[in-house]
């Protein structure tokens, strides 16, 4: 080949960088040992792990059958960490779980909310709809005539809670937000105000303790 047509190319300026390993290269050096790179032994090890879990759970199932035959199925040790949801609930649900919303109340049962739309503004799912009205008490001045949360759109991020300047909206730990009808998944003001710490929802606590009242 004519050397004039194919001159020796200059070496890249960053050659030293390459050799010194200072420049990022696309090669991702494998940190596996030779044994691990043989693949098959590691595959077998993985299969033995999953397989042992399988057999452990099948054994536990046999144990459960024994308990079930004696009518004490609930006491059987269980391998599954999940539950049959509507029939069972997880006992270890965290106290800071973000679930259904509530509106906190003043002492006379009126909503604490001043209809400032901060929650609606902060909401990334745009699921809060408020209509404000003139409150007869000039000291309160503004209150929500309508306060709807489309719970099926809600992503439970808790921004509304954080945006609220008067601690009027909170997320409880209650996560039973399922329904068969979409219409029923719009929570209106009265529903949100119906939360009562003395009633059955007691176990679904406020994350921050009792709501401030008055």
């Amino acid at each position: 080949m004519n050397p004039l047509l194919n001159p020796k190319l200059p070496e890249p300026a960053y050659k030293e960088e390459f050799t010194a390993g200072r420049l990022f290269t696309y090669r991702n050096p494998s940190d596996l040992t030779l044994w691990e790179r043989l693949y098959v032994p590691e595959v077998l090890r993985g299969l033995s792990i999953t397989g042992s879990i399988f057999f452990k759970n099948m054994g536990l199932w046999l144990v459960w059958l024994g308990y079930w035959a004696r009518g004490r199925a609930n006491e059987a040790p269980r391998g599954a960490v999940t539950v049959y949801y509507p029939e069972e609930e997880r006992p270890d649900m965290t106290k800071v779980n973000r679930g259904k919303h509530i509106l906190t109340q003043r002492l006379n049962g009126e909503p604490q909310c001043v209809a400032c739309y901060m929650c609606a503004t902060a909401c990334p799912a745009w699921c809060i709809h408020i209509d404000a009205g003139e409150h007869p008490d000039p000291a309160i001045e503004k209150y929500p005539v309508r306060f709807d949360i489309e719970i099926d759109k809600c992503i439970f991020c808790g921004y509304c809670e954080e945006a609220c300047p008067v601690d009027a909206i909170r997320l409880t730990t209650d996560y039973h937000t399922v329904d068969y009808l979409r219409e029923r998944m719009v929570y209106d003001r009265d529903y949100l105000l119906s939360w009562n710490p003395t009633k059955v929802q007691q176990e679904h606590v406020y994350p921050g303790g009792e709501p401030r009242r008055g």
Partner: peptide, 13 residues
Amino acid sequence: KQAAVMANRIGAN
């Protein structure tokens, strides 16, 4: 079901 049992879940039920 086997996936569930292998992953400590309940599975199709």
